[in-house]
Computed example of a mutant assay.
Amino acid sequence: MKVVGLSGSKVGSKTRTAMNYTVEALTKKYPDAEVTLIDLAEYEVQFSDGRNYKEYEGDTKYITQTIMEAEAIIIGTPVFQASIPATLKNIFDLLPVNAFRDKVVSMLVTAGTPKHYLIAEQQLKPILAYMKAQIVQTYVFIEEKDFHRKEIVNDDVLFRIDRLVEDTVLLTETYTEIRKKREEKYDF
């Protein structure tokens, strides 16, 4: 199973910290999974200009192709100005409309205040649904108070990350099995 962890911001450390915990939990619990962590802060990504994602070069091509080849994607995003970051939105814009068809996508959101918990519901989930993702309905919301010196200090958050990883893998395995059975019905 190919899983991509996408840390969707070029600034800050909390989302990357949470994604590190997530990837660690994933590789520990599911050692056979092929896990790739993409932190957008480490790449130079071009702005979407409407081309097919395969026509881009360099980091942009690497990121889009890696996402397109994945079976599951765990998106980590901070909330800036009551919205997802432009860097993450740009990734969505670089991909085709059906980019997440037959892919499971789960979310992890970091924010400075509990008032931003609906950003995932009102902004991120509609984009993912439009792009045909099988969305893990529960997501992990992490507040400023849950971090201390680039570490997560709230055990409940760690538990929720573990559960998110389990739900993502279970849903991916389930959809893979359903697709396999559906394809076996056809005799070609």
Rank of each mutant, 00 (worst) to 15 (best):
residue 11 V to N: 11
residue 13 S to T: 10
residue 18 A to M: 05
residue 20 N to R: 08
residue 26 L to P: 01
residue 27 T to D: 07
residue 29 K to C: 05
residue 29 K to D: 10
residue 30 Y to Q: 11
residue 35 V to L: 05
residue 36 T to L: 03
residue 37 L to H: 07
residue 42 E to G: 03
residue 46 Q to D: 14
residue 48 S to N: 14
residue 53 Y to L: 12
residue 54 K to C: 08
residue 59 D to C: 07
residue 59 D to S: 09
residue 59 D to R: 04
residue 61 K to P: 00
residue 64 T to N: 03
residue 65 Q to T: 14
residue 65 Q to I: 03
residue 65 Q to S: 11
residue 69 E to K: 13
residue 71 E to F: 08
residue 73 I to P: 03
residue 74 I to D: 00
residue 75 I to L: 10
residue 79 V to P: 01
residue 80 F to W: 15
residue 83 S to F: 00
residue 85 P to I: 02
residue 87 T to M: 04
residue 87 T to C: 07
residue 92 F to V: 03
residue 97 V to W: 09
residue 98 N to S: 15
residue 98 N to K: 14
residue 98 N to A: 15
residue 100 F to L: 06
residue 113 T to E: 07
residue 115 K to Y: 09
residue 118 L to M: 15
residue 122 Q to E: 15
residue 124 L to W: 01
residue 127 I to W: 02
residue 129 A to R: 05
residue 129 A to H: 04
residue 132 K to N: 07
residue 133 A to W: 01
residue 138 T to Q: 15
residue 146 D to Y: 08
residue 147 F to I: 00
residue 154 N to I: 11
residue 157 V to T: 12
residue 158 L to Q: 11
residue 158 L to I: 14
residue 161 I to A: 04
residue 163 R to E: 15
residue 163 R to T: 13
residue 163 R to Q: 15
residue 175 Y to K: 06
residue 179 R to G: 15
residue 185 K to L: 13
residue 185 K to Q: 08
